[in-house]
Write a protein that binds this DNA or RNA. Structure first.
Lengths: 297, 297
DNA sequence: TTATCAATTTCAGAAGAATTGAAGTTGGTG
DNA sequence: CACCAACTTCAATTCTTCTGAAATTGATAA
């Protein structure tokens, strides 16, 4: 059986024009090279060089030099691709994330992740938690970032950070004068605007308040605009409303349990691609640190 | 160093979905296959299968299956080409031959030669002996067929057959009545037409006759037409005028030395390509036999 | 949950292939 | 024609790969 290694030796000899130099180049003795060449000629079925001074090729030798070079080049390139992929230097990564993280957290994370992986292709979808789970489950996204869900399903959740809910109201609202964390009871008699994230709060008191609410707004920008216009107040994870908004105030809630767990969503039983695995490790290490500093503003 | 053989094993395992069947397919034990796979994973830098039951590939495994298959296919194809070329089943062959041989001898020879080599490409040039030598010397033709030349030059001559010169005259010419081989002296007083081939006759008597000749014609068809028209007689190698011509007679010459040696012309010090070498051997064996029967007509 | 069974892995020894260094050839050069 | 360098050959050695037995693993069924 002809080996690629034998072709490598042959090409080296053909290029150096003699066995001794080729032997040095491949790190063997001349006799080893000579034997390899002989074996190759036997297996191919004809002489490769015109004389045993290896400075001129036969027609067969020329053909083998061309074909051999191409095979070596192509093989080495393939191996390079395999290794690059295995070491997550190449590949593609599809991330599905809830908007708050996609907007406030992922940009610097991805930037740093891609700094050492310029060849990796990334797709980022910002969608709500339920859809994140769906995209990961169906394999459309390699990894998701979303709030924790009750049902396990085909996906697995790994917490990244916890994000406390806060109250958003107009900055001249009465509640701003309280000077202390807001109790659920403080909200009686106010107009609460529901949103996509606030359903996750488990407190019974909040649920009752929420049930009486007449408005639900999913878009954060709209939500802030409505609050600013004085149409009501709303409760959001603090990361969601990260960044100052003129005319609105962000107040602490007294209920420490009012928080959402944000974490990675991954498919169960399907191992991640090397890039996805690398991103997972990177995210697990970097996102909590980043979020901590971000929420301390 | 990753070996193509390891990729072969991996592809087989990926295709059979388990080690045992793959081991049978490649003629190894399961343990050997298992170890090869492990080594491959170490060298690439990541797992190839999702579990140690080898029925589902990782993303890396899928990539390697694709790339590996392609490498194997391409390598095997290259080796096939090398072997086919070495065994002269493919390649190209450029033959330069004098017209008499190209017309009367080569067609059946080439037909038989190519019967077992349908992929071989042949070019055939019919030109005079001097040009045959030139084409072979310059490498334009791989092999030549021509009359023997005095000067060696960069080419080598190997005799194939000897071709006696004969006299061609109008069939009502007086010489036809002699009923015996023609002596040079019989030609005194006749009109001799010189031609490209007859210069090779060494006999002093002929040379004198030839020197007196006023006409030289190189094209055999024209030559025969002139003879038939009664403008003179000419002396040609018998193969040249093979095939009956109405109205002309072919007479034996008494001078047994009046013959040309026809043979192979090959470049010195440049080994023939496998096809050329095969054709050489074939020609050396088949042409003399064919010519003998051809000239016995 | 545990028992079972086949597939896989591990391990040490065996077999095989490649490599070495020394001795022997060969071919080119002065 | 003798010399020298390059190459080949050969037997011993080293390195790699393979094998068979035993241990482990994981799926399936009781």
């Amino acid at each position: 059986m002809i080996k690629l290694e034998a072709l490598r030796v042959f090409v080296t000899v053909a290029e150096s024009g003699n066995i001794k130099d080729a032997a040095d180049a491949v790190g063997r003795t001349a006799s080893a090279v000579s034997m390899t060449l002989k074996q190759l000629e036997d297996e191919i079925g004809g002489p490769l060089f015109q004389t045993d001074r290896k400075n001129s090729l036969t027609a067969l030798g020329n053909l083998m030099l061309d074909l051999g070079r191409e095979q070596i080049r192509s093989f080495d390139k393939s191996v390079g691709i395999m290794r690059a992929f295995a070491h997550s230097r190449i590949g593609s990564l599809s991330i599905a994330s809830v908007p708050s993280v996609a907007t406030n957290v992922l940009p610097p994370i991805l930037q740093r992740f891609l700094e050492t992986r310029p060849q990796v292709e990334v797709e980022l979808f910002d969608i709500d938690s339920a859809q994140v789970r769906r995209m990961v489950e169906s394999g459309v996204a390699d990894i998701g970032i979303a709030g924790e869900s009750r049902a396990g399903g085909g996906v697995e959740f790994t917490p990244l950070f916890s994000d406390r809910f806060k109250l958003l109201c107009k900055d001249d609202h009465d509640l701003c004068q309280l000077g202390r964390p807001i109790e659920w009871s403080d909200l009686h008699g106010t107009t609460l605007i529901r949103n996509g994230a606030s359903d996750r709060i488990d407190a019974e008191e909040y649920k009752q308040l929420s049930a009486r609410s007449l408005m639900t707004v999913y878009n954060v920008t709209s939500l802030v605009a409505l609050v600013k216009a004085g149409l009501g107040l709303t409760i959001l994870p603090s990361l969601t409303m990260h960044g100052a908004h003129d005319g609105v105030a962000v107040l602490e809630l007294a209920d420490a349990a009012a928080s959402r767990q944000v974490g990675l969503v991954e498919r169960r039983d399907v191992p991640p691609s090397p890039v996805a695995a690398a991103f997972r490790a990177f995210a697990l290490k970097e996102i909590p640190a980043l979020v901590t500093s971000r929420l301390d503003d």
